[in-house]
Design a binder for these strands. Structure first.
Lengths: 336, 336
DNA sequence: TTGTGAAATGACAACGTTGTCATTTCGTTA
DNA sequence: TAACGAAATGACAACGTTGTCATTTCACAA
């Protein structure tokens, strides 16, 4: 009860209090079955009385590992929450904690810089969450003793990567339009520098070209509803526009509002698909069909990849987590 | 260039390579000015050639501190991103990294349990992000050598706490209604177990009672737009309802849509205020006035509080970060 | 009782740093 | 040139664990 105020209680202190050797205390912690029950109880009692807590530094020093995975957030946005959630849950399940650093606003952090900083911290491996291009992407080489996984849609020459299949998701949405009898699909992009936006655009373009359709000029947005609205006003005047793919749900909503304000109906006049499936949170009875990525799963995969590669840091793999089309009623079937 | 593949390069290896003593290498790292330039260069060259990286465990063991702050996420939701962002930036600014663990879905984690787990990890202090009530809140005592800050609207008997001033924010919104000539304010709550929702409701109630107004029965929502819509349908039928405070923007939007569907106009017939100021992202030309909390600032304050208390873990303080009313046009002035 | 092998425990070194204190080297002045 | 104080460097212990290997204790059979 009245725990002593001694600065740090070491295993040695516990050993003395329990009348056993240092090593026996160590055993009680790491291989309890190898010590007699009566002894074990005595040690536990001593630990309790003294308020003993194992010293992380000493343990790690001896063991040569930390039980921590480093996470570098180059970018911390809304969708990142679910991903962190997946990383954290998977980490815990496998007995790891997370050590996190973040690129600061305005700072220009390269992969090399991130690796340098991480390798000063208690980590056995690391995950880079990279949503924008970075200068040294191609040339970067991870520390040979630190398994490194990059979350990014781009392929990396030496590191393992994990990504949503954004391109595939966009292709899926496009084909959904085409399979419903639409002859063309317009595209509203997100911010130019965003890799997600670039990949979604790439998938859209590829899907159209595969069917021999010339993609119309994409409309530039910035992820927010207002930019979608602006795009929608433009699209409302195009007679051949029956299908719009917006790079996220907020812009899709903007497009829909603009169409409505122009006297057009979704889906009767124009069909719309978005990304991320989050509109239902904000719009009651939302009808928007949307491509949803499994960010949580993405995080889980990334962490598992790191842990799997702990023994062979130079191994390399590429994981794509597919998206899902959440169907509602914003796409009209023109085949009737 | 051709870095050796020796498992771990220690300061001793560097010392041998540079022809100096171990301690000199240590000095080059920690107090470069105390070593002659020529020697320093030689050591640096050796470090480079061997690919030396300081061992975190050994350093921490000797120093008795880690340079890491633990973060326990009892709850990881959308608003948490900005908070983490603030924590991470402030941490970096002060030379700390973050070690993070998370309550797993379904798991019932107490403060004591969180503290126990954290104290096995490399941390000098910790932050608990607590958005729901927890069993041992009142009885919990933080480890005496680990400064602990809890992010929660509740006051804690022994730990420092940091919180948005949710109650004050709700009061502010209510008074804004009343100051604009409204005689009463209806309230749509979030999920029952959410402390945020509880505090916002408390502030709403207090503001009305202060002015001698009997608060009407609050409507129960669940944060999502659909529940707001349901509440809106009910409110549309109440002739005395001129003002609605919804516990977040999504529900506020639901309320507005329901009112519109019932033929009522916002703000001409009914005025509405929400919380979090995020509707503009999803709704073009959004008119919703909203109470915005500075989550980033909250994170910064929490981290600073931990760092400030590192030397005196038992100190205790309470910080409230005020909200801001972002005015748009969803509130009608009835005083005319 | 004694002998035996297995189970339980202990002594000691080692992990890679930094602090303490002693020693060497240097530049300056007498 | 000698003497001196300051600057630079080094030897060694210590931080709190765990691994190795030796030793003691135990339960059981002879």
């Amino acid at each position: 009860m009245a725990t002593m105020d001694k600065k740090n209680v070491s295993m040695n202190d516990v050993a003395v209090a329990a009348g056993v050797s240092l090593k026996t205390v160590s055993r009680v912690i790491n291989e309890p079955d190898s010590v007699r029950e009566s002894t074990r109880d005595r040690v536990h009692a001593a630990m309790e009385a003294l308020g003993f807590r194992a010293n992380f530094a000493a343990r790690s020093l001896k063991l040569g590992r930390y039980g921590c995975i480093g996470v570098v957030m180059f970018h911390l946005s809304g969708g990142a929450v679910d991903m962190i959630d997946g990383i954290a849950d998977a980490a815990e399940e496998r007995g790891f904690a997370l050590t996190m650093i973040k690129k600061r606003a305005g700072e220009k952090m390269t992969l090399a810089e991130a690796a340098r900083r991480m390798s000063q911290l208690p980590v056995d491996g690391m995950i880079f969450n990279l949503r924008q291009m970075v200068d040294d992407f191609e040339t970067f080489e991870a520390p040979k003793d630190l398994k490194t996984v990059i979350i990014t849609p781009m392929e990396h020459p030496t590191c393992s990567t994990v990504s949503d299949d954004q391109e595939g998701g966009a292709r899926m949405a496009c084909e959904y339009f085409l399979d419903h009898g639409h002859k063309n699909v317009y595209f509203v992009s997100g911010k130019k520098e965003s890799l997600s936006s670039q990949c979604r655009m790439k998938g859209w373009r590829a899907a159209l070209e595969t069917r021999g359709i010339e993609p119309p000029a994409p409309l530039q947005g910035d992820w927010n509803a207002d930019s979608g609205y602006a795009a929608g006003l433009v699209l409302a005047d195009k007679p051949d526009c029956t299908a719009v793919l917006a790079a996220n749900d907020c812009m899709a909503n903007g497009v829909m509002m603009a169409l409505r304000d122009k006297g057009l109906s979704v889906p009767d006049d124009v069909s719309v698909i978005g990304f991320d499936d989050e509109l239902y949170k904000t719009i009651p009875n939302s009808i928007l069909t949307s491509v949803k990525f499994r960010h949580r799963e993405l995080g889980v995969r990334a962490l598992n990849e790191v842990v799997a590669g702990l023994e062979a840091p130079s191994s390399r793999s590429r994981t794509l987590v597919s998206g899902v089309l959440v169907e509602r009623s914003s796409v009209k079937d023109l085949r009737a």
